[in-house]
Simulated scan of single mutants.
Amino acid sequence: MGLTGARLAALSAGLLGLLAAALLAGLALGSAGFDRELIVQLRAPRVGAAAGVGALLALSGLAMQVLLRNPLADPYVLGTSGGASVGALLTLMMGGSLWLGAGLGALAAGVALLALTRSALAAGEDASPRLVLTGAMLASLCGAIATLLLAITPDQRLRGAIFWLIGDLSGAQGGAACGAAALLFVIGLSWRDTAIDRLLLGSEVAALLGEPVRRLRLALLVSASLAAGMAVASAGAIGFVGLVVPQALRLLGVQRTRDLAWMSAVGGAALLTLADLVARTVVAPLELPVGAVMSLVGAPLFIAVLMRGPR
């Protein structure tokens, strides 16, 4: 059952307030205190990148959950982020475009996952464990390839590459581009919200209701993969944002795609901004990788949701 109008409005106001508080805290707090030049030149780009990347990851997770009809779908868990990391490492070694390599790598991983689980998708909800296991193996394969690539990375670049692969916002760029892409993603999901809601009922039901199922699934796959690729190219492989945010919203009673789209973007932006704030202040002046901080939150939630799955 969905939320009533009053409860939905209250939740919306709370999410927007949380995002505003996270942005202000990210700009104001830090080891060097409140310094205008520091805020403008260093913190503002980093906070903007965290918000844009978080929004993209949450939207990518939401789209993959619709595409696979599985609440455990997430670009990190199912290997899309791993594919983006491999593509980015390859282009870095060849001197190509980081954004292009990450996008193509994420898209290739998404296509591979869809192809490997085609029969499972047709089998319905009982195939959920197979989907999760296939995605986990794909993620493991991408991780192994990335490790082999790191083994031949020059020593002077090795530490930075490792730190980037586990999620690092210290040198993140492209916050404005990520934010604009997230806005376009929200508009696209909201525009096709009825069709997406019907797709959640199953491909056959959606087709009977007149929806172009193949075209819709292809659009979701491409959008989710490119969003994950942009996020990885900007800040490295940060996990579980796409799992935590949509799941939390659904547990709170948000059901319609129109509401889930913009709320996931806002929630993802707020969550990653707060995680980055923790990563750079908890042991200041040292910084923790934000990907590790997110995993400390996401991994227990993933286990909890997986254990609740059969019910």
Results as ranks from 00 to 15, higher is better:
G48W: 01
G48L: 14
G48C: 04
G48R: 07
A49K: 03
A49L: 04
A49E: 02
A50M: 13
A50F: 10
A50V: 06
A50P: 06
A50S: 15
A51Q: 02
A51C: 12
A51S: 12
A51R: 02
A51E: 00
A51F: 06
A51K: 06
G52Y: 10
G52V: 12
G52S: 12
G52C: 10
V53R: 01
V53T: 14
V53C: 10
G54P: 01
G54Q: 04
G54D: 05
G54K: 01
G54H: 02
G54E: 03
A55K: 00
A55Q: 01
A55V: 02
A55T: 03
A55N: 05
L56Q: 03
L56R: 06
L56P: 01
L56V: 08
L57S: 08
L57V: 11
L57R: 03
A58W: 03
L59Y: 10
L59V: 11
L59N: 07
S60F: 01
S60C: 07
S60M: 02
S60I: 04
G61K: 00
G61D: 05
G61E: 08
L62D: 08
L62H: 05
A63V: 00
A63E: 11
A63D: 01
A63Q: 14
M64W: 13
M64Q: 15
M64R: 07
Q65A: 10
Q65V: 08
Q65R: 06
Q65I: 08
Q65W: 09
Q65S: 09
Q65G: 07
V66Q: 09
L67Q: 02
L67H: 00
L67K: 03
L68H: 11
L68D: 02
R69W: 10
R69H: 15
R69P: 04
R69N: 13
R69K: 14
N70K: 14
N70L: 09
N70Q: 13
N70W: 06
N70I: 09
P71F: 13
P71N: 13
P71M: 12
L72P: 06
L72S: 09
A73G: 05
A73E: 01
A73F: 00
A73N: 08
A73H: 04
D74P: 01
P75F: 06
P75Y: 07
P75N: 09
P75S: 15
P75H: 11
P75G: 11
P75K: 10
Y76E: 08
Y76T: 08
Y76M: 08
V77L: 15
V77W: 09
V77H: 04
V77A: 15
V77K: 01
V77C: 11
L78I: 15
G79N: 10
G79Y: 09
G79M: 12
G79T: 10
G79S: 13
G79I: 07
T80R: 00
T80P: 00
T80Q: 13
S81C: 14
S81H: 10
S81Q: 10
G82K: 07
G82E: 09
G82S: 14
G83Q: 03
G83R: 00
G83E: 01
G83S: 07
G83Y: 00
G83V: 03
A84H: 06
A84Q: 08
A84D: 07
A84K: 01
S85R: 13
S85M: 14
S85T: 15
V86W: 05
V86H: 12
V86E: 03
G87Y: 02
G87Q: 11
G87I: 13
G87A: 10
G87P: 09
A88C: 14
A88T: 14
A88E: 09
A88L: 15
L89D: 08
L89P: 03
L89F: 13
